[in-house]
Amino acid sequence: MKPLLDINRLNIDYQSNKKEFNIIKDINIQIDEKMKYGIVGESGSGKSLTSLAILNLLPDALKVDQGHIKLNTDSTKDLITLSKKEMRKIRGNDIAMIFQEPMTALDPVYTIEYQLLEVLKIHKNYSKKEMHQKGLDMLNKVGISRSEQIMKAYPHELSGGMRQRVMIAMALICEPKLLIADEPTTALDVTIQAQILDLMNDLSESHHTAILMITHDLGVILETCERVAVMYAGQIVEESTVENIFEEAAHPYTKGLLSSIQSLGERSNELYSIPGNVPTPDNYQELGCRFATRCPFAMDKCYEQEPPMFEVQDDHASKCWLHVEEAQDDERRTSRAGS
């Protein structure tokens, strides 16, 4: 079976009159139907750009240099080459997106009803009465009890958690196949975050919607996702199931991230920390591994040649020379034992 969304060797470049450099390099992601997939990374790792590329919403200075983003619904479409008109049919209908800051994503001068039903007006053919009923049902589903009142309200009258519920209702009202959630709970308090994550889990199951969750918070990933890609400096450095990543992380960056958050919980004296800072795109290393300058295990090779995505175990890939070296060592040992 073909995956619902197939991102294949996606590259994004920054182009201006003065300079040109690569930002996103060789992203491969496959999301099956109903799957909950996570992309995790620090700020500037390119996780949001990847999601914007899916919906063809990249800013003008950024260009997709090569690669495909294929959406397999009834037919297969390459989202990179689609015309603007065709893309509009997909946004909100097949793929919907929710953002971190619901206050800026909702229009302050229109009522919730207008904004909620606008999606339906564009993509479906319902009568006014049917639409209104659909809207009320959807608000009830996202846990808004006074739905009649809320329909008439304006965004500023709602709390942060309520606004994010409205955003989710808007995203799911056309029953999309894929929901992209870009840091959906980062601006919310923990108790509200727990409510929203719970709600998203329930709705994705009842609506058979696949979710692409983009976050910096590994806790949110563990709470919601089945598979996860770890991004660093515009590349995927490790990809596997959530269990594999959390229990058998292979890449030094993933290990570092996990150690720094896990040592927080232990009340130990010194926290594990990754030295240095996240590089900015114009400072990415041209050759070799982009993490090498901060990596405690960096070898000469890491500065010279880009590491491959290496299959460390079944269904678990990590982009690091260490694994290749280890595999070679193992091979040598077995061949020596054989001879």
């Binding site: 509200i192 975050q193 727990a194 806790g219 229990e247």
Partner: peptide
């Protein structure tokens, strides 16, 4: 509040009982 912190340990996650609060502040 403590139960709402997303867990970062897969084993802990299974045993944890979450209290989901209703409503907003």
């Amino acid at each position: 509040l403590l139960s709402a912190i997303p867990s970062i340990n897969p084993k802990e996650k299974e045993n944890k009982e979450r209290i989901i609060l209703q409503g907003d502040v």
